[in-house]
Design a protein around this nucleic acid. Structure first.
Length: 613
DNA sequence: GCTAAAA
């Protein structure tokens, strides 16, 4: 049984080797030759957790192995003797709309997009993976290696998922072991399923009190999934409904800009998993129509966005000021393609003894996306865009219309570009925060269907949205943050398919030159000579490319232990508190990142980011 | 300063 990080990697190696994919347990150079031998086995806290990923055989409804749970035994909320929450799980399933729209008495026969399911797994070979934390559960190679239960497995087959994507191979066992998780995985790699499967499975097999009677107007979900935009919440809800079909697990979505009454009615009918945007959730909490006291699972999608300046106070309010159980009692999972260190530091407030997971291609932005940068003066952008669109039209593809997503900086700019495109004969629509929710959803539908194959968008569409057939992402205005660039171009090249991203660059973007050219280099993209000159000239623009550069992110806890006595980037006092110190204080990487609760006292703060900027 | 998120 693995007792350290290094052992877990070894276990992963074996598992991978036996599965025929001997590159997936790639150990990056900076992690090789770490000797775990000086580490005492760290079993006191974690308990005999990681080795016991169930090997199938458990029937649905049979109690799952108690792997990894002992570490949380103090938590309560796990009281035995409750009725199974889903005791009457076939109640109402006759009325449940078939989200697949296929067989089995579907009342909703709208054909479903199957292209998503055709995941190109060849694109996922040879992917570097980094994990850290105590007793990291080993990855699995197939869905059959995990005991998710018959109902969930059936839905996985309905989704045409043949085998788990890399992030799913690693994240699902970690999550099934009831461990907190900070996961970094490239755009379009299947993160939603990675947190939904364990949540649904956990709710099905867990011993939870029955859903409150309909009379009670306060809904008490067991799981909360937060996301930064309404459309992303809608999308997560749609996916989660497929995964939860006929499992008895009820998924409800709540977001702003739409009438609240229908959402209230849905909540009254019972909810196990609530998918929400922060503003509407706060509203529901204030009205006492939702209580978080039963929350067992908390997932933040696009977690770095959720914890940046604009969102952080609201999230802190929801997670820390309401009635949600604390870290260690609930299970918390944070997912994103990007995870800046300063955000990791904030995020660790919400986590207990968590596993850090980074899964991604070298360079973190997938090299399935061909990235181009063109020097275009502000005044020439429109005609240049028109040239691109003309060329694309000339190359006309058969079958599905190729879609082009154009990102701009401002809402007004989006409107005016849309108007200009339309008046020049290009069928375009736009999505941004000044449009009504109806208009936003209509625009997205029209774009997805190919009816309006050009979508002009602000950053509202930058993250998470899974839009099949986006062939081209144009950064008409570059963002001011390289991470936003990564998310934007990630709207193409999804599910292992290729895509093209073109950026318009001029003097106004000089602060991005360095990070952009570094990112492109890491993704094996051709960097134009003029951009390299810009990058060399740029003084301190942009943000430092993350840590080792090989991953979309690195566990900031590692940096703490390795940063030359800990005084170069952070205050020395900060280093040894909370997460910083490995158990021996000798910089050994394995184990010992433990016991986060307390110990922080807000000791990080002002001075921390300055080293980067 | 921009974007997002409750009316």
């Amino acid at each position: 049984m693995p007792t350290s990080w290094a052992d877990s990697v070894a276990a992963a190696d074996n598992a991978a080797a036996s599965g025929g994919n001997n590159r997936s347990a790639y150990v990056p150079p900076h992690l090789r030759n770490r000797q775990p031998s000086s580490e005492p086995p760290v079993l006191a806290q974690g308990g005999p957790s990681s080795g016991n990923v169930p090997s199938g055989g458990n029937r649905w409804g049979a109690p799952r192995n108690d792997y990894g749970r002992s570490g949380y035994s103090s938590g309560g909320g796990r009281g035995g003797g409750w009725n199974n929450r889903n005791g009457g799980w076939d109640r109402g399933s006759g009325r449940e709309v078939n989200p697949f729209g296929d067989d089995e008495g579907a009342t909703d026969v709208e054909p479903v997009e199957q292209e998503n399911a055709g995941i190109n797994f060849d694109a996922y070979e040879d992917i570097p993976v980094e994990t850290s934390g105590e007793n990291v559960p080993p990855p699995v190679n197939t869905f059959a290696d995990i005991d998710l239960g018959d109902a969930l497995n059936k839905n996985i087959r309905r989704c045409k998922y043949v085998k788990p994507t890399p992030v799913q191979r690693y994240a699902i066992p970690i999550s099934l072991a009831n461990r907190d998780l900070m996961a970094c995985a490239q755009t379009g790699s299947g993160k939603t399923a990675a947190f939904c499967f364990p949540i649904i499975s956990g709710i099905m097999t867990g011993q939870f009190p029955p859903r409150a009677p309909h009379m009670l107007r306060t809904a008490c979900p067991l799981a909360l999934i937060l996301s930064p935009t309404r459309e992303l919440s809608i999308q997560i809800h749609e996916e989660a409904r497929k995964f939860a079909y006929q499992t008895g697990v009820k998924v409800v979505v709540a977001y702003g800009g739409a009438p609240i009454n229908q959402q209230l009615r849905e909540l009254e009918r019972g909810v196990d998993i609530l998918v929400a945007t922060p503003g509407r959730l706060v509203d529901l909490l204030e009205r006492a129509r939702v209580s978080l006291q039963m929350i067992k699972y908390l997932a933040l999608d696009e977690a770095d966005r959720m914890l940046d300046m604009g969102f952080e106070p609201q999230i802190r309010n929801i997670v820390q000021q309401m009635d949600m159980p604390p870290p260690g009692v609930r299970q918390t999972m944070l997912f994103s393609a990007t995870f800046p260190k300063e955000i990791q530091r904030l995020a660790s407030d919400f986590l207990a003894n968590y596993v850090f997971l980074a899964v991604g291609r070298v360079g973190s932005s997938t090299d399935l996306i061909v990235q181009r940068v063109e020097y275009v003066q502000e005044t020439d952008k429109r005609s240049h865009l028109m040239d691109l669109l003309h060329a694309q039209r000339a190359n006309g593809t058969h079958g599905k219309q190729a879609l082009t997503l154009v990102f701009v900086e401002t809402k007004k700019g989006a409107d005016s570009l849309e108007y200009w495109l339309c008046s020049n004969g290009f069928p375009a629509t736009t999505i941004h925060g000044d449009r009504s929710q109806q208009e936003r959803e209509q625009a997205l539908r029209s774009f997805k269907s190919g009816h309006t194959p050009i979508l002009v968008a602000t950053d509202v569409a930058a993250r998470g949205l899974d839009i099949p057939h986006v062939a081209h992402v144009v950064n008409f205005d570059l963002p001011n943050d390289i991470d936003d660039y990564v998310h934007r171009i990630g709207r193409t090249g999804r599910a292992g398919k290729s895509g093209l991203a073109t950026a318009f660059f001029n003097e106004n973007n000089s602060s991005m030159a360095r990070s952009l050219s570094e990112l492109m280099q890491e993704a094996n993209q051709e960097v134009p000579a003029w951009l390299a000159r810009f990058a060399a000239r740029a003084s301190f623009g942009g943000k430092n490319r993350r840590g080792g550069g090989r991953f979309g992110g690195r566990d900031f806890r590692r940096d703490n232990s390795y940063s030359r006595g800990g005084s170069d980037y952070y205050g020395a006092g900060n280093m040894s508190s909370g997460y910083g110190a490995p158990s021996g204080g000798n910089g050994a990487p394995s184990g010992g990142y433990g016991a986060p609760s307390g110990g922080y006292g807000g000791s990080y703060g002002s001075g921390v980011t300055s080293a980067w900027d």
